[in-house]
């Protein structure tokens, strides 16, 4: 019904015209690159601290230290880009303009996904090259080394999926603060803590943030029941589920 390109263009205008969304996306880049650079500089002179027994030095992982926090920034971006419609009451204006709710959500997701992917790609490649430069010739790795290109590229995909997952959760709960209150502690605390509790460890592995992170590793840390791409697929499945849930809520509920 509604013309998809027109709605997508309007969604792009929405995102770029609010400072908080723009800055949350810029902060993905700044946080990831700055932390990666700092840790790489430290690692250059303290290699032994960055090497676990029996494992090789992971130059990619060192330059990607910042991704752990960049994840949070991209989650915030995903939440804000969608959630500010609810906090401002603008959702009614949006739905009056585009009453085809599926089209509206699809356009929002497409624009958000494209932006998140573009920002993530720039972020991971810059973080990688700056990190490698900081590590210096003796320690650094190259994109040509085994699994490195996959890890770099996969990290960008992983960040993009987390962004869309957050957007889906926000549409489901229809409240940006609530969405942040669920997602941030989950990624920062719940998931990492549960992942070291023996009983639930095997279940937590299938959480989206855990499963998706498999692709970011050049050297697999432990024997996961799935490979890096399968892990990313698990994360993608969660994302699709969240967006579907969001679609159903948007479709069914009064605005």
């Amino acid at each position: 019904m509604a013309a998809f390109p027109a709605v997508a263009q309007s969604e792009w205008t929405k995102i770029r015209s609010v400072r908080s969304t723009v800055w949350s996306l810029v902060s993905v880049f700044l946080i990831t690159v700055a932390l990666g650079l700092a840790i790489s500089l430290v690692a250059r002179n303290n290699v032994s601290d960055f090497t676990e027994d029996g494992r090789p030095f992971d130059a990619t992982a060192v330059s990607f230290i910042g991704v752990g926090f960049g994840r949070l920034a991209i989650v915030v971006f995903g939440v804000l880009a969608v959630g500010n419609e609810y906090s401002s009451g603008m959702i009614r204006v949006s739905l009056a303009a585009v009453p085809q709710r599926g089209t509206l959500l699809a356009a929002k997701t497409a624009v958000l996904g494209a932006l998140a992917l573009a920002a993530s790609l720039v972020t991971v490649f810059v973080a990688f090259f700056i990190g490698q430069a900081a590590l210096g010739g003796g320690l650094s790795t190259t994109l040509g080394s085994e699994n490195v290109l996959r890890a770099v590229f996969g990290t960008a995909l992983y960040l993009t999926l987390l962004c869309l997952l957050s957007a889906g959760v926000t549409v489901m709960v229809r409240h940006q603060i609530l969405a942040l209150a669920i997602l941030v502690p989950f990624i920062l605390l719940v998931s990492p803590i549960l992942s070291i509790v023996p009983v639930v460890k095997n279940v937590v592995r299938y959480f989206p943030d855990q499963a998706g992170s498999a692709i970011t590793q050049v050297f697999p840390t432990d024997d996961l029941p799935y490979g890096p791409w399968a892990g990313l697929l698990i994360c993608a499945a969660w994302t699709v589920a969240a967006l579907l849930g969001g679609y159903l809520v948007l479709k069914k509920r009064d605005a």
């Binding site: 205008t13 015209s17 204006v93 585009v98």
Partner: peptide, 25 residues
Amino acid sequence: LLEAKAVHPGRTAYDHLLWLAQSNR
């Protein structure tokens, strides 16, 4: 016009009308 200020507080008047205009060509 349903309720006053159903506008994102951080968006300019121009941009608010611009996204609306774009959505309906």
